[in-house]
Amino acid sequence: MHPRGQNGGRADPELPELETGVRLLDVDGDERATGPLHSLVLDHLLMNDGNAVWVDAAGHAVSQSLASLAPSGRTLDRIRVARGFTAYQHYSLVRRLPEQVDEDTSLVVCPAFDHFYRDTETYADEGDELFLRALATVASVADEYDVPVLVTRSKQDSFSDPLAAAATETIRCEQTKFGPRFVGDEFETLVYPMEDGTVQTTLSFWRCVLEARVSAAETTTTPEVAHGAY
């Protein structure tokens, strides 16, 4: 992850740059929060060519939230979403990722990666086994196709520890009294300072970040969005 943080001496706000490999985003205090995840996804698409392949779990691919943050609706057209509702469905979608990722794919998104595998629907250790196999698949996709795979987890505990162990880097998002802050190996961002001495926080903060990318979005040719199954 290149250190685009600290604003690099520029006035434009910055977010962590997602590089090749499994990138784990941990949101302190609320793993269900979608703002940080959506912001990283949209920022990546605004700064890079290509599309995002999204395997959703626990309702993280919220169109309204994404639309409220995106400076251009065309950016959303570059996200292909597949939704699973059980451990087996999610596992099947993840196993099909090698068929869905190609030279036009610049990002793979798998939020709440561990969510379904905790379900009592699976037998004994079957959930653990499916979880580890799915994790091996996304790690292989990241290596083979040289793309970043952005994942989150529904809970930070021993069950999801293999996800943290497999991640090339863990990006932590902390909610401070001054606003959201990303912390990574070589990156730290606090809030976006305003000329009058105030700071932008929450949704306003994310919009400031993403509006700085609008010029990139305006020059992107986008395919039609696909929801549901691949």
Rank of each mutant, 00 (worst) to 15 (best):
L42W: 02
H38L: 14
G184E: 01
T122W: 03
L46R: 01
V27R: 00
R207L: 07
P98F: 07
Q89R: 09
Q6P: 04
S63I: 11
T201Q: 15
T219R: 14
A139P: 02
V141E: 01
E218R: 11
G73H: 07
T220K: 12
T20K: 15
R23F: 03
S65G: 14
T221K: 12
K155T: 13
R95D: 11
Q100S: 10
Y123S: 15
E14Y: 05
V183K: 10
A61V: 07
Y91E: 08
V141M: 09
C110T: 07
P180W: 04
A136Y: 06
G127M: 06
E195N: 13
E188L: 08
L97V: 05
A67N: 12
H227R: 11
Q89T: 09
P111G: 05
A167F: 04
G50R: 05
T120C: 08
A166G: 04
G84Q: 06
S68H: 08
L190T: 07
W54Q: 02
E169N: 09
L46S: 04
A166K: 05
T34I: 14
L150Y: 02
V109N: 03
E103I: 08
V214R: 15
A67C: 08
L97K: 02
A166D: 06
V199Q: 08
L45M: 09
A165F: 08
D143M: 10
V149A: 03
Q6F: 15
T86I: 09
T221D: 14
S160R: 04
